[in-house]
């Protein structure tokens, strides 16, 4: 571990803005910054997750004008500064889905390949955090390029060559500072539900009455899925007018009725319990089946921003009790 002075780190980051597109917490949300003075945290984690950098809510796949087709190119380099370890893990999960051997997604990969993730450890996790349930934790460094730990005037930093080289000449010896206690305190403050074996268990629960029970109060808005750092469903539509059109990719949510509405008028997931089941199944059954990891990182956004307090931890506990 190395030590880096906060002021000097921000100065360096300011210089890097010339070459990189830098995203950082800006108050409540996560956004592009022009100057490090904009970096501000209003809560432990940001509301809109960093997935918006690599999978924007709306992006052009190509544009066409009278037979002339253009595919947008993206050669920007990104630095995501101060994301939380859970969100870094979420990006690693998105990688598994978009950077597959058979169907690599060029738009996602273009952005992702030139990006550096600098995660910041959570010294005081929130009451909605449950990242430890999924083998991650408030000090987890494996999914980010670097992990910084706030120590007042300076950060402790550890990471790979790519990330550390950004701060060449600023890194000092940490003087043997121990963070174990800090880490333990943070981890202990998180109350996570037990999830072991939930993927296998869910396989036999397609027709379980539990879905009706847990979805009753859900009003089927898309807040949970749009704020979720790992939800990646999208819709593709053509928009434009006259002779200029573009094919665009926009976020979509499995919680919406129209998500599965077929052209015939048939809707296999008309009832909200089926949609809720889809969301839970996708995270805790389909994802482990495909990629050997849970599709949830325990960031707690869906709990915190749900208008009717649908709590995924409660749903997990109920499933485990069945």
């Amino acid at each position: 571990m190395k030590k880096i002075d906060k002021k000097r780190l921000f100065e360096r980051l300011n210089n890097l803005i010339k070459d990189y597109v830098v995203y950082a917490p800006k108050g409540k949300d996560f956004g592009k910054i022009e100057d490090t003075s904009e970096i501000k945290r209003e809560s432990i984690n940001v509301r809109l997750s960093p997935k918006q950098v690599f999978l924007p809510q709306e992006e052009a796949l190509f544009t066409f004008k009278q037979g002339d087709i253009k595919v947008p190119e993206n050669n920007e380099k990104y630095i995501l500064f101060g994301i939380r370890p859970c969100d870094a893990k979420a990006i690693a999960l998105l990688d598994k889905n978009f950077d597959t051997k058979d169907f690599p997604d060029p738009y996602y990969i273009d952005r992702r390949k030139n990006s550096i993730l600098i995660a910041e450890a959570c010294i005081e996790p929130e009451s909605t955090c449950f990242c430890t349930a999924f083998g991650s934790g408030p000090f987890e460094s494996k999914d980010a390029d670097a992990l910084i730990i706030d120590r007042g005037d300076y950060y402790l930093i550890d990471g790979n060559e790519k990330a550390l080289s950004l701060f060449d000449g600023l890194l000092e010896d940490d003087g043997g500072e121990k963070i174990l206690e800090l880490k333990k305190k943070a981890e202990d403050s998180i109350k996570s539900p037990v999830v072991e074996g939930i993927d296998k268990k869910l396989s036999s629960m397609i027709d379980d009455p539990i879905w009706d029970e847990v979805s009753r109060k859900c009003i089927t808005c898309g807040a949970c899925t749009y704020l979720c750092p790992t939800c990646y469903c999208f819709d593709i539509q053509d928009v434009g007018k006259d002779d200029k059109y573009m094919r665009e990719r926009v976020w979509d949510s499995c919680m919406f009725t129209v998500y599965t509405l077929e052209a015939s008028g048939h809707n296999p997931r008309k009832e909200k319990e089926k949609r809720m089941r889809q969301r839970v199944m996708h995270k805790f059954n389909y994802y482990p089946f495909l990629y050997d990891e849970y599709g949830c990182v325990g960031c707690g956004r869906c709990i915190k921003y749900c208008p009717v307090n649908v709590d995924i931890r409660k749903i997990i506990t109920k499933i485990m009790e069945v």
Binding site: C221, S253, V308
Partner: peptide, 17 residues
Amino acid sequence: IRCYACRQACPMCYCEE
């Protein structure tokens, strides 16, 4: 962000489509 929480939370927004 067009999550339509406003619509879904409203008792009067009951249109089928």
